[in-house]
Design a protein around this nucleic acid. Structure first.
Lengths: 124, 124
DNA sequence: TTAATATATATGCATAATGCATATATAGGA
DNA sequence: TCCTATATATGCATTATGCATATATATTAA
């Protein structure tokens, strides 16, 4: 479900519905857990799989915030071709944070199931 | 999972994780579908079942916005005891909006399942 | 050689959502 | 008369989001 800019008002557009707050955070954490170390530009590509926009700004800002909160740590990779990459890896706190997200997601899924079921019971 | 104000920073607190954006909107729509007409104060009570905060401000503001968007319509009930109630009912557009939320929720649930599974596959 | 493109990181800005506090008014009960 | 419950509403600070833009490096095509 996608958003044509014209007929999409932020208040009623169904394309906005169902999104999970700050979803980019657990996605980045999981991607790092799967493949460490990694850098922003690479992570950006892999975020597509989670249905997130291709927004470099959000990725880099979130990674910097997570580092500020000691959930990840970074180092510069000046080797290889092209501009330098900032390599990220998970900290133990970051692992814990991801685990908390999973716990919350299981709960969210339960609530979604309940919500959908209540609706379907009405519709018959 | 809940929020003790002291140790809860908005950026890392796990109690914030897993919430669905603008979730109050479909909750109000579903509550109205189940019981029409209804008013803000009554809806406020019933929102507890969906795990939402007891925040009158959010409820009244959301209802006014939904009316502005023609998703619900209201009328004053000056009968009975106490202050007047603003009674809300769903419009056809509101019914449609709720149906769209449900569609999106089914998709969200699928994505959540996938995310959780990917995590668990890593953990073994 | 120069121009365009891909890679890589970063900031700025406007809008919207959220949580919390507060204001206002009506009616019933102690 | 004062407190409480009912009922609606606004104000404010912080945060999230999407989009645009800036900057720099290296490769490729003209």
């Amino acid at each position: 479900m996608c958003c044509k800019k014209d007929n999409c008002s932020p208040s009623s557009c169904s394309c906005r519905g169902g999104k999970i707050e700050r979803f980019i955070e657990p996605c980045l954490l999981l991607l790092l857990k799967k493949n460490q170390p990694s850098h922003g530009y690479e992570l950006l590509d892999n975020l597509n799989a989670f249905g997130l926009n291709n927004d470099p700004g959000s990725v880099y800002r979130t990674l910097r915030r997570l580092e500020n909160e000691q959930m990840v740590k970074s180092s510069w990779d000046t080797e290889g071709t092209g501009p330098a990459k900032r390599l990220y890896e998970l900290s133990p706190e970051g692992e814990k944070l991801l685990a908390d997200w999973i716990t919350n997601f299981k709960n969210t899924r339960k609530n979604l199931d309940k919500f959908i079921k209540e609706y379907q019971d009405l519709e018959g």
